[in-house]
Simulated assay, not measured.
Amino acid sequence: MSIFRTCLTFVMAVAMTSCAGANASMQPLASAAPGPYQLGPGDQIRINVFGLDALNNTYLVGDTGEISLPMIGTVTASGKTITRFETDVADSIRAKQLVLEPKVSAQILAYRPFFILGEVQRPGQYPYVPGMSVMTAVSVAGGYTFRANTKKVMVTRSSAKGSAGPDSSVQPGDLIQVQESWF
Results as ranks from 00 to 15, higher is better:
Leu60Cys: 06
Lys161Glu: 14
Gly21Thr: 09
Ala141Asp: 08
Ser163Gly: 12
Ile176Pro: 00
Arg46Phe: 11
Thr76Tyr: 01
Tyr128Ala: 11
Pro172Asp: 14
Ser168Tyr: 06
Asn149Arg: 13
Ala22Ile: 13
Ala106Tyr: 03
Ser31Lys: 01
Asp174Ala: 05
Ala15Met: 15
Gly124Thr: 04
Leu60Lys: 10
Leu109Tyr: 01
Met135Gln: 14
Gly124Gln: 06
Ser92Ala: 15
Gly62Gln: 14
Gly143Trp: 03
Thr76Leu: 08
Ser139Tyr: 02
Ser78Thr: 10
Lys152Cys: 07
Gln177Arg: 14
Gln97Asp: 13
Gly21Met: 13
Ser105Cys: 02
Leu69Cys: 08
Leu52Val: 14
Asn149Pro: 01
Ile67Cys: 03
Met135Cys: 02
Ala106Gln: 06
Cys19Tyr: 06
Asn57Ile: 08
Ser25Cys: 01
Ala33Phe: 07
Leu52Phe: 06
Leu69Trp: 04
Ser181Thr: 06
Glu180Phe: 02
Arg94Thr: 13
Ile3Lys: 12
Ile93Gln: 04
Trp182Lys: 04
Ser18Phe: 15
Ala32Gly: 14
Asn56Lys: 07
Ile93Pro: 00
Val14Gly: 08
Ile67Asp: 01
Cys19Gln: 09
Gly21Ser: 10
Val178Pro: 02
Lys80His: 10
Thr87Leu: 12
Thr58Ala: 14
Phe183Gly: 03
Ala20Cys: 11
Tyr111Ser: 04
Val138Asn: 03
Gly143Met: 08
Leu8Val: 10
Ser168Asn: 11
Ser18Gly: 05
Phe115Met: 09
Pro70Val: 10
Lys103Cys: 01
Arg122Ile: 12
Ala141Gly: 05
Tyr37Val: 05
Ala54Gln: 09
Leu39Asn: 00
Ser25Asn: 10
Val75Gly: 02
Pro28Gln: 13
Glu66His: 11
Phe183His: 00
Glu101His: 09
Phe85Leu: 09
Tyr37Gly: 02
Met1Thr: 11
Gly165Asp: 14
Leu100Asp: 12
Tyr37Phe: 12
Tyr59Phe: 10
Gly173Asn: 13
Thr145Met: 09
Ala137Gly: 15
Thr6Asn: 12
Ser139Pro: 00
Ser158Ala: 13
Thr17Glu: 07
Tyr126Met: 14
Leu8Asp: 06
Gln177Val: 15
Gln121Cys: 00
Val140Leu: 14
Arg5Cys: 11
Thr81Asp: 04
Ala95Phe: 09
Leu52Thr: 07
Pro102Thr: 03
Leu117Val: 09
Ile72Cys: 07
Gln179Pro: 00
Thr17Trp: 10
Ile93Lys: 05
Thr150Ile: 07
Met135Ala: 15
Glu119Ser: 07
Val120Ser: 05
Trp182Ala: 03
Ala30Gly: 05
Ser159Trp: 13
Ala33Asp: 10
Lys96Cys: 05
Pro166Asp: 03
Thr150Val: 07
Gln125Val: 13
Asp88Arg: 06
Val104Ile: 05
